[in-house]
Design a protein around this nucleic acid. Structure first.
Length: 740
DNA sequence: CTGTTTAGGCTTTTT
DNA sequence: GCCTAAACAG
C-alpha cells in the first residue's frame, strides 16, 4: 500500500469534527508547538490523546517519530488499542509505553555509556531492600533503627530529583545511623553496577544522565521524536520532567495532558509544580482547558467540585455537564466495618436483582489495602463474585519469583540476588553460613559473583563433604541447562528447569492445598511464557509489568484502592471508610500537614468522580485495626460535601452527622472513646446471640461456600478450626459455615 | 543446617 | 490478625 492511500484510510476512520467538542478539537488539531491540556475528570482526555496521535499520523508523520508516555501499563495498553482502532492498525512503531518501559528501551541501546552492560537486569523493590540491608549490616549500622526502607526512601527521593550521588549537594548531608546517606547511596549504586542491575528509579535517572552527558545521543533522540505526548502529566517527578524537557527541546512539539486536581502521587515524588513550570519552560505554549464532563450526573459533579474547592493549592476549573441531576450521593453512617460491608453487599444485591445492574459496573474503592478484607468476607457469604484489583501481584508470589530467579541466573551468572534466592530452594542443605563464605570469597578474590566463587571454592577444595557435593550438583545443573539446545522454546526450557531442579516435586511433596495453588500459578506462568521468544524478553516484561493480563471482563464487582481506580469509571461506586485517620490517612496528615490533606482530598475527588450515576460514601463509628476495635470520627471531607447533593442514611448504630451536632471534634472523639468501652460489651452479646443460633460442637460436619464440606476440629469464640475434606484445615468465622 | 517458636511490625498509595 | 525475621533447640 502506498503511503498516500494509507493516510487516506486513516482519514476515513476518523471523524474529528463530529465527535469532539471545540476545546477537544483544538487540542487535537493544533499539533505544532508546546501544548498543555488541563483535562478535568471525565472530560475525554484519552480521546483527545488518541485522536491527536491519529491526527499527527494523518499529517504524514511516521509512527516511529512519535513518543507517547503514560504511567501505567493499563493506560499504555488502552491508548495503543484506541490508536490502532482509530488508524486502522497503521500505528505500529509508535514509541508508546510507560515512562519506565520507554526508559528501559532507550537505556538498553546505550547501556555502556552509563557503565552497564546491555543485558542489565531491573531489580524490584524487595531485591532493592535486600541489597540495602546487606550494606547497612556491613556498615555496622543499627538495623533496627535505621532500616532499609528508610534508606530506600531517601535514595529514591534523590533519584526522583535526577541526582546521582556526586550531584547531591553536601548541604543535603543526611545522617543515617552515623554514616552519610550520600555515601551509602554511592555504595549502593556501585553495588548495582557490579551486579549489572538497575532499580526502578535508575531507569529514569540513567536516562536523564545519558542525555545530559552525551550530546550526540540527545541530538539523535531530539531529531527522532518529532512529537511527544504525555499522559497524567501531573504525576511526573522532576527527573521525568527534565528528561521530557531535554527530548522536547528539539522540535518543541510536546503535548502534556494532566489535571492538577488528580495529582495523587506526591508521596513518590510527583510534582504538580511541573504543570505550572510548563508555560515558563516552553515559550509560546498554548493551554487548553477541558471542562465539559461527559461521565457523571450533576449531583456527583457538584459534590466533587465542592469538595475539591477546599484545596488552596490548585489552578482551579469549573466542570460542567449537560447530564441530568441524577440521584444525590448517599451518605451512610454505620456502626462498624462489618455493617459497612453488609450494607454494600445488600445494596449490590438489590441493584443487581431488582434493577438488573451489571456487577462489572460497580466498584468498591478503598483508601488502603487492608480494607478489602471485610468486603471479601461479606461478598463470599453473599456469593457475590468479586475481584480484588492490584492485591498481591502475580509476579510477586514466592513460587513465581523462585522460577524467575532460576531464569535470571541462567540469563546472567553474576546475578547474586537470584543465586541467593534459589540456591537452597528446594532444600539443598546450603544455609546462611555457606552463603556468607561465597560472598567473602568473592570479595577477596576480585569481586567474583557468588556462583563463580562457589565454583572456585569447589576447585580449590575449600568446599567438600555433604555441602560440597550439594553445591557441585547445583552447579552442574546450571551448566547443563545453559547448554540446552538453542531451538528449545522458552516454555520447554522452563519445564526442564522445573523438573530437574525438583521444584515441582518439592511442591507436590508438600501435599497441601496451598502447594496445589502454587502449582496452578506455575501453570499460569507457563501459559504466559508462551508469548515470549526469549528469556530476556520475558524477564524484561516481568520487571516492568506488575501483573499478568487477566482478561477478566467477567461480571464481577471490583474492589480496589482509589489510586488503582484512577482512569476507570463505573456506574456505581462505593466509597467506604471515610473516617479521620483512615481517610485522610493519619500518615499523610502527620508527615505532610496541609499539603498531605490536600493530596488526600484530591484522592477523594478522584474517588467520587469515578462514579457515573451513583456514589455511596460510608463511614463507621468503629473499625477493626489489627483486629482491635477502634472508635473513629467522620472524615473532615464529609462535611465538605454540599447538603443539596447528598442524602443521609443512618443505619441506627452509626455516628450522628457532624453538622447536626454542635459538639466540637474533640468532644465527639472523647464521647466515643468513653462510650466505646460501654458498647464493647454489647458487641459480644450480639455475637453470642448468633452463637446460640447455630452452636457448633467439635466433630460436627459443616459446609462452607468456598472450601466445601468439613469437620469442626476446634473452636474459640466465633472462630472455628475446620478440617475441610478438600481444602485442608482452615480457621473460619462461624457465620460463614452452616451445619449439615 | 533445619525446623519450630516467638516477637515485632504492619496497613497507604506503584513503576 | 497475619506475616516476617530473628532466636533457639535439635
Amino acid at each position: 500500500m502506498h503511503e498516500k492511500e494509507m493516510f487516506q484510510n486513516i482519514h476515513e476512520d476518523i471523524d474529528f469534527k463530529s465527535s469532539l467538542n471545540p476545546e477537544q478539537l483544538s487540542a487535537v488539531e493544533n499539533i505544532e508547538g508546546p501544548l498543555l491540556v488541563l483535562a478535568g475528570a471525565g472530560t475525554g482526555k484519552t480521546k483527545v490523546l488518541t485522536s491527536r496521535i491519529a491526527n499527527i499520523l494523518l499529517k504524514g508523520t511516521f509512527p516511529s517519530q512519535i513518543l507517547a508516555v503514560t504511567f501505567t501499563n493499563k493506560a499504555a495498553r488502552e491508548m495503543a488499542d484506541r490508536v490502532a482502532k482509530a488508524t486502522g492498525g497503521r500505528s505500529d512503531g509508535i514509541w508508546l509505553g510507560t515512562f519506565h518501559s520507554i526508559a528501559s528501551r532507550i537505556l538498553r541501546s546505550h547501556a555502556p555509556a552509563v557503565g552497564l552492560k546491555t543485558n542489565f537486569i531491573i531489580i524490584d523493590t524487595s531485591d532493592q531492600l535486600r541489597l540495602l540491608k546487606q550494606i547497612i549490616v556491613e556498615m555496622n549500622i543499627d538495623e533496627k533503627k535505621w532500616n532499609a526502607k528508610k534508606l530506600a526512601a531517601i535514595i529514591g527521593k534523590w533519584k526522583d530529583k535526577g541526582l546521582m550521588p556526586d550531584k547531591v549537594g553536601s548541604s543535603e548531608y543526611c545522617d543515617f545511623g552515623g554514616h552519610s546517606a550520600i555515601e551509602l547511596y554511592r555504595i549502593y549504586q556501585a553495588r548495582l553496577i557490579a551486579l549489572n542491575a538497575v532499580d526502578f528509579g535508575d531507569l529514569l535517572l540513567y536516562n536523564l544522565i545519558l542525555l545530559q552527558n552525551n550530546d550526540d545521543i540527545l541530538k539523535n533522540y531530539q531529531r527522532r521524536f518529532k512529537y511527544i505526548l504525555v499522559d497524567e502529566y501531573q504525576d511526573t517527578n522532576l527527573c521525568q520532567y527534565l528528561w521530557l524537557r531535554l527530548l522536547a527541546q528539539g522540535n518543541q512539539n510536546i503535548c502534556c495532558v494532566g489535571d492538577d486536581d488528580q495529582s495523587i502521587y506526591g508521596w513518590r515524588g510527583a510534582e504538580v509544580g511541573n504543570i505550572l513550570r510548563f508555560e515558563r519552560d516552553f515559550k509560546g505554549a498554548s493551554v487548553v482547558r477541558l471542562e465539559r464532563n461527559y461521565r457523571s450526573t450533576s449531583h456527583i459533579l457538584t459534590a466533587a467540585s465542592e469538595l475539591i474547592s477546599n484545596n488552596k493549592d490548585r489552578l482551579g476549573k469549573t466542570l460542567w455537564t449537560k447530564d441530568n441531576e441524577g440521584d444525590p450521593l448517599k451518605l451512610i453512617a454505620v456502626w462498624d466495618d462489618r455493617e459497612e460491608a453488609r450494607f454494600v453487599a445488600d445494596e449490590i444485591e438489590s441493584l443487581q436483582q431488582t434493577k438488573g445492574h451489571s456487577l462489572s459496573q460497580m466498584a468498591v474503592l478503598v483508601r488502603a489495602g487492608f480494607q478489602t478484607r471485610s468486603f471479601e468476607e461479606r461478598f463470599i457469604a453473599h456469593s457475590i463474585p468479586y475481584k480484588v484489583v492490584g492485591g498481591l501481584r502475580f509476579y510477586e508470589r514466592a513460587e513465581i519469583k523462585d522460577i524467575i530467579a532460576y531464569l535470571r541466573l541462567m540469563n546472567q551468572s553474576s546475578d547474586d540476588l537470584a543465586f541467593e534466592r534459589i540456591i537452597n530452594v528446594p532444600k539443598r542443605g546450603i544455609g546462611d553460613s555457606t552463603l556468607k563464605s561465597f560472598r567473602d570469597f568473592g570479595r577477596s578474590n576480585g569481586n567474583l559473583s557468588m556462583l563463580d566463587s562457589a565454583r572456585a571454592m569447589l576447585q580449590d577444595g575449600i568446599l567438600k563433604g555433604k555441602i560440597g557435593n550439594s553445591v557441585e550438583n547445583f552447579i552442574s545443573l546450571i551448566d547443563k541447562w545453559r547448554n540446552l539446545p538453542e531451538e528449545m522454546t522458552v516454555v520447554e526450557f522452563v519445564e526442564t528447569v522445573l523438573k530437574e531442579s525438583a521444584y515441582i516435586e518439592m511442591l507436590k511433596a508438600e501435599d497441601s492445598m496451598e502447594a496445589e495453588g502454587r502449582i496452578e500459578n506455575i501453570k499460569e506462568l507457563l501459559r504466559a511464557l508462551e508469548e515470549f521468544e526469549t528469556i530476556e524478553n520475558f524477564l524484561e516484561h516481568v520487571s516492568l509489568v506488575s501483573d499478568i493480563d487477566m482478561l477478566n471482563q467477567d461480571n464481577m464487582v471490583g474492589i480496589m484502592t482509589m489510586h488503582a481506580a484512577k482512569g476507570l469509571e463505573f456506574e456505581t461506586v462505593f466509597l467506604p471508610g471515610w473516617e479521620e485517620g483512615l481517610f485522610p490517612s493519619q500518615r499523610s496528615v502527620d508527615e505532610s500537614g496541609t499539603k498531605g490533606v490536600e493530596e488526600e482530598r484530591r484522592l477523594a475527588y478522584v474517588g467520587i468522580t469515578r462514579a457515573k450515576k451513583r456514589a455511596y460514601i460510608l463511614y463507621a463509628a468503629n473499625r477493626r485495626v489489627y483486629n482491635q476495635f477502634q472508635s473513629s470520627i467522620p472524615s473532615r471531607f464529609i462535611e465538605e460535601l454540599p447538603e443539596g447533593s447528598i442524602e443521609k442514611i443512618n443505619m441506627g448504630n452509626g455516628l450522628s452527622f457532624r453538622k447536626e451536632s454542635s459538639e466540637s471534634y474533640d468532644s465527639i472523639k472523647q464521647r466515643y472513646k468513653s462510650e466505646d468501652s460501654a458498647k464493647q460489651s454489647s458487641i459480644p452479646s450480639m455475637n453470642t446471640t448468633k452463637k446460640t443460633n447455630g452452636n457448633f460442637t467439635v466433630g460436627q460436619r459443616v459446609f462452607h461456600v468456598k472450601f466445601g464440606y468439613g469437620k469442626v476440629t476446634n473452636l474459640s469464640g466465633n472462630q472455628l478450626d475446620v478440617h475441610f475434606d478438600k481444602a485442608g484445615t482452615k480457621k473460619v468465622i462461624e457465620t460463614y459455615v452452616e451445619a449439615v
